[in-house]
């Protein structure tokens, strides 16, 4: 019975994810096409017949709705089209080339955010109003108030330039030393948010009746926290993971640029500036699909954890 309700819940969520993705694709597509300026506008105008041929080669001479439908049809086959700027690559290849680096940086950042965020928040909640609590919360406030594009250069200045401990930028084929600073810069704001969320909900949960019961029956404090409090306290954190993923994905655009990491994110700004329509579309669709899929996963996880949500 419970399983059936859960499956229905999952199916409903999955169905609502598709229209969202379609909206993303539609919005991005028409926003780009309606903007002034095209990919082949140059200082010197091309001769009209050549321009016609170039446009025809990329199907840009078709009516807009036709291009849109074609693009959707291509997408369902996993074809993101060719890049206008990098003539030798398809968009799918560019994304596939960059993704391993992006995934490592983003995944590690999310992992750090959850582990350190929950850890610090729990420690702060267990020692409420102690110096330890204040230290953690000051740290969290710093993480929230200092944006990652400020933190990244400051960290580089400190560890890369003055102390010469870590490389300033570059990927170094994925060496740990090269990953450290970008991951820290990307994770810090999320560590901070999650720490604050965890602290708040943990304090609330620790004051609730079922925790009093657990304590009253003589359970050790450590077990009270790990066995009973954590699950309830983590609900807000789980629901924040969706926005956190989006923030990390967006942040990676700038972090990859600052640290010169060969990831997918940097193609976005670059492509947008060059009016490389398929590349920008590809990156937006790819990231949106990923964010929506992770949101979905988070929703399901939330549904598993919070039975109140499983109403049919």
């Amino acid at each position: 019975m419970a399983a059936r309700i859960m499956i229905a819940f999952a199916a409903r969520r999955c169905l609502s994810a598709l229209p969202t993705l379609l909206i993303v694709i539609t919005l991005a597509f028409f926003m780009m096409r309606l903007a002034p300026g095209g990919p082949f506008d140059q200082e010197r105008a091309l001769p009209p017949e050549i321009e016609r041929n170039v446009l025809a080669a990329y199907n840009l001479d078709q009516p807009l709705w036709r291009q849109y439908l074609d693009y959707l049809a291509d997408l369902t086959r996993g074809d993101f089209g060719p890049s206008f700027k990098y003539r030798d690559f398809t968009v799918a290849e560019l994304i596939a080339n960059g993704f391993p680096a992006s995934l490592q940086i983003g995944g590690l950042a999310m992992l750090c955010a959850i582990v350190f965020g929950v850890g610090l928040g729990t420690v702060a909640a267990l020692h409420q109003n102690s110096p330890l609590d204040y230290t953690v919360m000051t740290f969290a406030m710093t993480g929230i108030a200092v944006p990652n594009f400020v933190m990244a250069p400051l960290l580089t200045l400190l560890f890369g330039v003055y102390l010469s401990l870590l490389p300033v930028a570059g990927w170094g084929d994925g060496a740990w030393a090269n990953k450290l600073l970008p991951v820290i810069a990307l994770a810090l704001p999320q560590v901070a948010y999650i720490a604050r969320l965890t602290r708040g909900s943990m304090i609330e949960v620790l004051n609730s009746n079922y925790i009093r019961t657990a304590r009253a029956k003589g359970l050790r404090e450590g077990l009270v926290v790990t066995r009973h409090a954590v699950k309830g306290a983590l609900l807000p954190v789980v629901s924040y993971l969706g926005p956190a993923t989006a923030a990390v994905a967006t942040g990676s655009v700038v972090i990859e640029t600052i640290f010169d990491i060969p990831g997918t994110g940097r193609y976005f700004v670059e492509g947008a500036l060059n009016r490389d329509y398929p590349l920008v579309m590809g990156v937006v669709v790819f990231y949106a699909a990923m964010i929506i899929a992770l949101n979905l996963a988070v929703d399901l996880l939330y549904g598993l954890m919070d039975p109140k949500l499983r109403r049919p």
Partner: peptide
């Protein structure tokens, strides 16, 4: 609101800035 919430908005803001000056 729920649907809009799920959109990666920063990308759209950036697109808007790039495309419309």
């Amino acid at each position: 609101v729920d649907i809009l919430y799920a959109l990666p908005f920063m990308f759209f803001v950036i697109l808007l800035m790039v495309m419309f000056g």
